Amino acid sequence: MKPAEQYLTKSREILDKVAAQQSRIEQVADQFAKTILAGKMVHVFGSGHSRMMTEEMWPRYGSFPGFNPIVELSLSFHNLVIGANGQRQAMFLENVSGLADRILRNYDLTEEDSALVISSSGCNVVPIEMAEVFQKRGVKVVGLISRDHSEPSSSKREDGKKLQDFSDIVLDTGAPLGDAMVNIEGLDTPVAPGSTVGGCLIINSIKAEVAQRLTDAGHPPKVLSSAAIVGSERAVELFESAYDEHAHRIAKYYEQVGKA
């Protein structure tokens, strides 16, 4: 089988693994819709390459307000690779205890909020502590991991706990141990990771389910839409109103920060 065929075959297997989680995806959508309908936000966090999942949720075409993408550049700014702001520093900081608490110190969280924390391994300190702090502050946490990779892997926390230990619901990207899915003859290490495929499938499945729940409740979301579909005037209207709604929602999380 050619390398591209291997990857596509493995990706189809991931699609099946995601489809098998339909009931849990619907459970997550129930929770997230409840949060958004209450005027609150679903906080989405991923460090390293898991940052891509936060941006897949919002803001992009086909997405809508109600999600707060927490992207910490010190943990996810990879394009320089080496030197200042390089990958070595990001990977180091990803396992610095206490950083998660500093990040969430910026928000006045409520028990009506929800959180989605993404970490393929579920073993790095910052994502684990993000989930832990969310739970301590009464926020329901959904963890998105690769089970086949996480379960045999060792946590970077001294107590051995992983992201799934601080998650009310756990979803699985379906990616294999090590993430990479394609074996090349003559190369002793596999290439082409799969967690992004499974992660994007799950993110957008949740998004679609939440959109239906909001619409059924009489509050259809303001979806960022292409002018090719809705026309230029309507596209601009949707973008502006969606961004305004995001601003109004997120502003509430700053008003009482630091106050007793």
Score class of each variant (00 low, 15 high):
G62C: 08
T110G: 06
G138M: 13
L99K: 12
F77V: 03
I70Q: 01
F166Q: 04
G83Y: 10
S150H: 14
V126T: 06
G66M: 04
S76I: 14
E111W: 12
S74R: 14
I118A: 03
E111R: 15
P65L: 02
R105A: 01
R137W: 03
F92V: 08
D159I: 12
F77G: 00
L80P: 10
I70G: 00
V133D: 00
Y61M: 07
S120Y: 12
E94I: 07
A131P: 02
L144P: 00
K136W: 15
I118L: 06
L75W: 01
Q164Y: 09
F134Y: 08
G66W: 00
Y107F: 11
Y107P: 00
R157D: 07
P152M: 13
L93C: 10
D101C: 13
V96H: 08
F64P: 01
S121R: 10
G62P: 02
V125Q: 01
D108M: 15
E151K: 15
K136R: 15
T110H: 12
S154A: 15
F92R: 15
G98Y: 08
N95F: 05
Q89E: 10
P65Y: 01
G160L: 13
A84L: 08
E129N: 08
I82C: 08
G160S: 13
M52W: 10
V125H: 00
E56G: 07
V141K: 07
S153R: 09
K140Y: 07
Q135D: 06
G98M: 07
E56M: 12
V71G: 07
L104Y: 05
N95C: 09
S74F: 11
S50F: 02
R102P: 03
L80T: 15
S74A: 15
E158Q: 15
S76L: 12
M57G: 03
